[in-house]
Amino acid sequence: MTRSTGAGSGTAVVDVPGSGPMVRVENLHRSYGSGAAAVHALRGVSFEVPRGELVALKGRSGSGKTTLLNLVGGLDTADEGRVSVDGTDLAGLGESGLLELRRDRIGFVFQSFGLIPILSAAENVGVPMRLRKADPREREERVGLLLSLVGLADHAAQRPGELSGGQQQRVAIARALANRPSLLIADEPTGQLDAETGLAVMELLRAVVRAEGLTALVATHDAQLLGLADRVLELADGEIVRE
Rank of each mutant, 00 (worst) to 15 (best):
M1Y: 12
M1K: 11
T2W: 11
T2C: 06
S4I: 13
G6A: 10
G6P: 07
G8R: 11
S9H: 14
G10M: 14
A12T: 10
A12S: 09
V13D: 06
V14L: 12
G20V: 05
V23S: 09
R24F: 05
V25Q: 09
V25R: 07
V25T: 07
E26Y: 01
H29Y: 13
H29P: 03
S31Q: 13
A36H: 12
A38W: 00
A38N: 10
H40N: 09
A41P: 13
R43N: 14
F47S: 03
E48F: 04
V49S: 12
L57M: 10
L57G: 08
L57W: 11
K65M: 03
K65C: 00
T66I: 06
T67Y: 01
N70V: 05
V72W: 02
G73L: 10
G74L: 14
D76R: 14
T77E: 15
A78F: 09
E80T: 09
V83S: 07
T88A: 11
A91R: 12
G92H: 13
L93M: 15
G97N: 15
L99H: 15
E100I: 03
R102Q: 14
R102C: 12
D104N: 13
R105K: 13
R105G: 08
I106F: 03
I106M: 03
I106S: 01
I106P: 00
G107M: 11
G107S: 07
G107N: 05
F108C: 09
V109E: 03
F110A: 04
Q111R: 11
S112K: 10
G114W: 08
L115F: 11
L115Y: 08
I118P: 07
S120H: 13
A121W: 13
A121E: 08
E123G: 02
G126D: 08
P128S: 09
P128L: 13
P128Y: 14
R130F: 03
L131Y: 15
R139S: 10
R139D: 01
E141K: 09
G144K: 01
G144V: 09
G144M: 08
L146M: 04
L147H: 03
L149Q: 06
G151W: 06
D154H: 15
H155S: 15
A156V: 14
A156L: 12
A157M: 14
A157W: 15
Q158C: 13
G161C: 06
E162Q: 14
L163D: 02
L163T: 05
S164D: 02
G165M: 06
G166F: 08
G166W: 07
Q169G: 01
V171R: 00
A174I: 06
A174R: 00
A178R: 01
I185G: 01
A186R: 04
D187L: 06
D187G: 08
E188F: 01
P189R: 04
T190R: 01
G191E: 10
G191T: 10
L193E: 07
D194K: 05
D194P: 03
T197I: 06
A200I: 05
M202E: 00
E203C: 04
R206E: 07
A207M: 10
V209T: 08
V209A: 01
A211T: 12
G213I: 02
T215Q: 01
A216R: 02
A216Q: 05
V218F: 00
V218Y: 00
V218P: 02
T220M: 01
H221Y: 02
A223G: 04
Q224R: 07
L225W: 00
A229Y: 06
A229F: 05
D230M: 09
V232N: 07
E234K: 13
E239R: 15
E239A: 15
R242H: 11
